[in-house]
Simulated scan of single mutants.
Amino acid sequence: MNQNLISQAIDIVGLQAIAQACGVSYQAVRKWERKNKLPRTDWTGETNYSTAIEKATGGAVTKSALLATVPLTSQE
């Protein structure tokens, strides 16, 4: 079973801190957590949530780890 890196990030700095760092609502972060992945837009370069999470966690959760698994579909 894959570890949920978004849950790890939340455990490290808190839900609100992740949401604020990414400029999204806490509900959006919870959605990513449920899906265990960031939106497709992070792979296409439209957003950069993975970098924001890496910075917010002080490198404990890395961009490369968050983007290690490419999303299977383009639907979010």
Rank of each mutant, 00 (worst) to 15 (best):
G45C: 09
T62V: 13
A17E: 11
W32I: 00
T47W: 15
Q27T: 12
G23D: 10
L67F: 09
K63P: 03
E54N: 07
D42N: 15
G59V: 11
G58Y: 05
I10W: 02
L67Y: 09
A60W: 01
V70F: 03
P71N: 04
M1W: 03
S74V: 05
D42I: 00
E54S: 09
T62A: 14
A9T: 10
K35N: 07
M1D: 09
A19V: 06
N2H: 11
S7C: 06
V61A: 01
K37N: 06
I53S: 01
P39H: 10
V29D: 01
Q27L: 15
Q75R: 15
Y49Q: 05
W43V: 00
Q75F: 07
L5Q: 04
T57I: 00
Y26G: 03
S7R: 06
A60D: 02
R34G: 11
A21C: 06
N48C: 07
L15E: 12
Q8E: 11
T51D: 14
A68T: 10
A19D: 05
R30N: 11
S64Q: 14
V29Q: 01
S25A: 13
A19G: 12
K63W: 04
Q20H: 13
L72F: 12
T44W: 00
R34S: 10
Q16G: 12
Q16M: 14
N36E: 15
K31C: 05
A68F: 08
R40D: 03
G58F: 04
T57M: 04
A19F: 12
E33C: 15
T69P: 02
E33H: 11
S25E: 12
L38M: 13
Q8K: 10
Y26C: 06
W32A: 00
A19L: 12
T44A: 09
Y26F: 10
Q16Y: 15
D11Q: 13
L72Y: 05
A19Q: 14
N2E: 13
G59C: 03
E54M: 07
D42V: 00
Q16K: 14
Q16N: 14
A9S: 08
N2V: 11
V29T: 08
G58V: 00
L67N: 11
I53P: 00
C22K: 01
T41E: 14
I10Y: 05
K35W: 05
Q75L: 13
T69F: 05
S74P: 10
D11H: 10
L66M: 14
N4S: 15
A68P: 11
N4G: 15
N48G: 10
K31Q: 04
A52T: 08
V61I: 06
A60T: 09
E54Y: 07
Q20I: 06
S64F: 12
A56P: 01
